[in-house]
Design a protein around this nucleic acid. Structure first.
Length: 350
RNA sequence: GGAACCAUCGCCAAGUUGGUAAGGCCGCAGCCUGCAAAGCUGCUAUUCGCCGGUUCGAGUCCGGCUGGUUCCUCCA
């Protein structure tokens, strides 16, 4: 509260803010030549076209409250030099940032993020009051993310279409959700649906299948070109799509080379290092691959699967393919996919 | 009513100094396999919502239209 009050007082002293008759304090947007630059709002005096009726004591239609005077009754109020009341919406952020971040004299902080709905008026106002109070810019970069929608609709409790991660996590590995949610550029709207989530899972699955081919083994050094390509993509305003494309390409190349030479230790070690780098940078691919494919399968089911696989192995050895295929169908029916490899049969929960 | 952002292959999605369309899913063909699955190879947008304009050249710039999302009041 002290920091808030001090910042408001400073704005009043600099004539960037004014107190009206009821004790409200408003920021004078006309005193800030850069007002509107973040949200690309043009200065227009045709504010009477707005469907909103404004406080008549405002000097300019876009002036906003730094401090709201106490309305009495149950209203929570604080004592301040200008009036008894409470802070406006935006001032808390500006005050907090100034108090806790040193800045470099040009910017208080490097990056300020938030949802696209906060772009205006919140961030515009926050930036304006900080700019006038401190004499320098609040943030070097403003990043606004799009919204998560459910089947084309904004996710909200009132629409009844919200979901909780804890429910999704019962069915999907957390990394699948992370991969999916991060697979689209942060600024775009994100239409959440299970079909696309499954597509994301298929992509992550490929990474983990490759990892199965790499283990056991130790990582050596990450491939320089691969690392550079990923960093370049992410440095370009977090271009995750390009980064994921590089990862897909790396996976395909590794698989191709392993097909040609399954015992290429140097390749395995480097690829393992590549995957470790992906995990460090993007937060997926770091798990033990067999457990990744077994989420949601308890010990009981696991034993049943192993038993069926043993029977199938016996049938295959006896060339009884009718039986072995029947067992495979049984497993498929309960969501277990199997694949025969030179090292034996492995299974995955789909 | 005003404003901002967005609109690319069946689906998801890159493409910011304009130079001739990444990647993934699906699908098709092939290799591999007892058959599959997995993996690999090849193929799959003369075209970027629509209409104009600028330019030697536009998905990329400008204008208009259509469609979608968001903001323009309080609370944060």
């Amino acid at each position: 509260m002290d920091a808030i009050e001090q910042m408001i007082e400073r704005l009043i002293d600099k004539d960037c803010a004014y107190v009206v008759s009821n004790g409200d304090v408003y920021f004078d947007t006309s005193k800030d030549p850069h007002y509107g630059e973040i949200s690309h709002k043009v200065h227009d005096d045709e504010e009477n076209l707005s469907r909103v009726v404004h406080n008549s004591e405002k000097r300019n239609p876009k002036d906003f409250a730094l401090w709201k005077a106490c309305k009495g009754g149950e209203d929570i109020c604080f004592d301040a030099p200008f009036s008894k009341g409470r802070p406006g919406w935006h001032i808390e952020c500006s005050a907090m940032i100034e108090k806790h971040f040193e800045g470099d004299g040009t910017y208080s902080i490097d990056i300020h993020g938030g949802g696209a709905d906060l772009l205006f008026p919140h961030h515009e106002n926050e930036a304006a009051q900080s700019r006038c109070a401190t004499g320098h810019e609040l943030a070097k970069y403003w990043m606004h993310n799009g919204f998560v929608q459910i089947d084309g609709e904004k996710m909200s409790k009132s629409l009844g279409n919200s979901f909780f991660l804890k429910d999704a996590l019962k069915v999907y590995d957390g990394e699948v959700l992370r991969y999916y949610l991060n697979s689209v550029h942060y600024r775009n709207d994100f239409n959440f649906n299970e079909e696309d989530l499954l597509t994301a899972k298929k992509r992550l699955d490929k990474l983990y299948r490759l990892k199965k081919r790499l283990l056991p083994g130790k990582a050596s050094a990450v491939n320089k070109d691969f690392k550079a390509a990923l960093l370049e993509a992410m440095a370009d305003d977090l271009n995750i799509s390009v980064a994921l494309a590089h990862i897909d390409e790396m996976i395909a190349n590794a698989n191709e080379q392993l097909d040609a030479n399954p015992k290429d230790k140097a390749l395995k070690k480097e690829t393992l290092a590549n995957l470790e780098f992906v995990d460090t940078l993007l937060g997926f691919g770091g798990k033990e691959p067999y457990s990744y494919f077994q989420i949601g399968v308890d010990e009981d089911l696991k034993a049943q699967i192993e038993e069926k696989l043993q029977k199938r192995a016996n049938a295959k050895a006896a060339k009884d393919f009718a039986t072995s295929d029947a067992i495979r169908d049984e497993l498929t029916a309960i969501g277990i996919a199997i694949m025969d490899t030179p090292e034996g049969t492995v299974w995955e929960k789909i």
